[in-house]
Design a protein around this nucleic acid. Structure first.
Lengths: 199, 199, 199, 199
DNA sequence: AATGAATGAGTATTCATTCAT
DNA sequence: AATGAATGAATACTCATTCAT
């Protein structure tokens, strides 16, 4: 059995341990308030090791982004390509992004809070990836609006941003010990989107 | 004519100039990446002057929050207290918070991006104020749900967070030179909320 | 009845209030660690008032020295001029300096801890005053050594410094709520001196 | 020949150079008036190097204390454990502390002048160490008083403080180019103590 | 693959003093 | 006699990164 998704403890490869430590600390304290020293201490290695694997502190942040974007893009692609009716495809995609954002709370928190701290060229690339995601999501809405199953009263870009705002905002109020499960929250939020799009 | 709301130029009182400079810089670069030195240079005063009026860099941030919260709470109170039907009161409140957030883009950007950087006690107070705002907004939804003009399918807290997510997210995509005016955006977003709440 | 020695409360003249506040704070925290701001707040006035009466923070320190030296010199002069036998005169002077140092603990603490922080020219003057005191004290010892009532085994300067070391050291261990009264401590210390001088 | 006790010049290890520079400057100017910048310049290193080895400016001060206390405690222990008569043991200990204080004038000056500037927890530890020293010294006096070779007229704690006052005071008047050698001064001061204790 | 000493530029904050009023 | 706004220089400390080993 391959060790694919395991908590990166004492024995995991050094780069993973560094990334895991950085993710937790960036989410807890923010990027600027987390020192490289803290990261290497939490990962149980020294600075030299970090700079052996990563070119800079920025690289760690960039890698966290790439990881979350990769997961969410894969999920979205899968839903979009299904042959179900568009309202089903959108609902599932809309709910899924909520679930994956909650399942990767740290990544998602960092994503929205610290994107603007990336070096310009890396930021550009992240924006491009994000744009791709946004556009594929928007295409679903446009498809529904064209076929009449969704109201066309609101520009589709605005609808995407409305829903993504909720995702963005999740880390401001979501608590793992709250009364609703991630799936319940996802269903409710997807529901709000679908209701808003009713013709 | 009284000079009440003017851009704080070279002649405005020092505290206003400092606050204006800090607001612009915090929004552009983030709180942690803006140095006190930059602020005082932008305001054309010395560090001593800043610390004469503000106890710390944190105080500046806190004041920016308080200022935005004050405006939005006043507006919300006015809408909530009107005698119009609840769906009208909610729509107006929902659109207004979009407009004031756009009109004070810098404040709003800072608000969502840097709240977690405030010292714990100040953060606590801001959260309390924010909570008050949230609750008053939620009360409108509850009222409509109780009287049957709004669907009760979604817990009201979640509805508030859904809409506020959009506000939160605004600063990620809104550009003053975009195709829609603030009022148009506000109308669309309020519309989405009202449609989502249709029974 | 003249108000000569009263605690400088809210109604005492401003210079006294400032001096009293400075004395307490310098003794508690040290000269360098006490800010002018703290002093004026403790005295209930503003900075302008302080600089109206005192040329600088250093002046406050200098005044505290002068005050203690004045008292101790007066006492010593009185004892030295008495017509009692030299061993009595010395014992009384030796005990008295202990009592006045305890009665003015704050002044004494500041004296030994912060003298080196005075500006050079003021330090020079304090040293000169202190020297005068030292010499008059030494003269008593020399007189006793010459007449044979004291042992001449130890150079008189060294004897003076031995005894003054004890005074200097007082503020390191003396506690007002200790088991001995100031007078008892003074008697013991004077006793040690007299026994050390026995032929 | 091993290089064990050499002046830490340009080639000595960085921590020693820093400690030596700090010791000299603290003694000359006082702790608060010596800036970290001055220390690193005197040691020929950068601030980063200082903070690589010492956690704070306070740590430097603490290390200076520990160093002096270590030496003096070792010496006292050696004298106390000897099998000589108590009056000899006390005289030797009393003279030795004078000599080591003079030999480490800078350390001793700093000790008495700046102890109260240490952070509370570090101060507590120094006080505990100092107390241990004081108690061992006092034990010698108690032993002599119990066996009748010393007068019991004065409480032993007071006798210790009397003698230590002289040590404390040394740095106020001792000059290396004075007429007496450190050993002569030590003999005189030990003599005064022993004479004061004669029954 | 990894260490850890060292850099140097940067950080927020403090403070004695001045001065127009 | 007294205010309080303002200065400007100084302070201790932090940190991402480099590099010889």
């Amino acid at each position: 059995m391959a060790r694919t998704t395991q908590a990166p403890g004492e024995t995991a490869p050094v780069p993973q341990r560094l990334l895991a430590a950085a993710t937790r600390l960036f989410a807890e304290q923010g990027f600027d308030r987390t020192s490289v020293q803290e990261i290497v201490e939490a990962a149980g290695v020294t600075k030299g090791a970090l700079y052996h694997y990563f070119g800079s502190k920025d690289d760690l942040l960039h890698e966290i982004y790439a990881r979350l974007l990769r997961v969410q893009q894969e999920h979205l692609d899968a839903f979009a390509e299904s042959s179900a009716p568009v309202e089903e495809r959108l609902r599932e995609a809309a709910a899924d992004v909520v679930v994956t954002s909650i399942e990767n709370t740290d990544d998602a928190t960092i994503f929205f809070r610290s994107m603007h701290m990336l070096a310009p060229e890396k930021q550009k690339q992240v924006r491009a990836d994000r744009r791709r995601y946004h556009e594929r999501f928007r295409a679903l809405i446009e498809e529904g609006q064209a076929s009449g199953v969704f109201s066309a009263a609101t520009p589709p870009d605005l609808v995407v941003d409305y829903h993504f705002g909720a995702i963005h905002h999740l880390s401001s109020w979501y608590k793992p010990d709250g009364p609703m499960s991630p799936q319940e929250i996802a269903d409710h939020l997807a529901d709000l989107l679908m209701r808003a799009l009713r013709p």
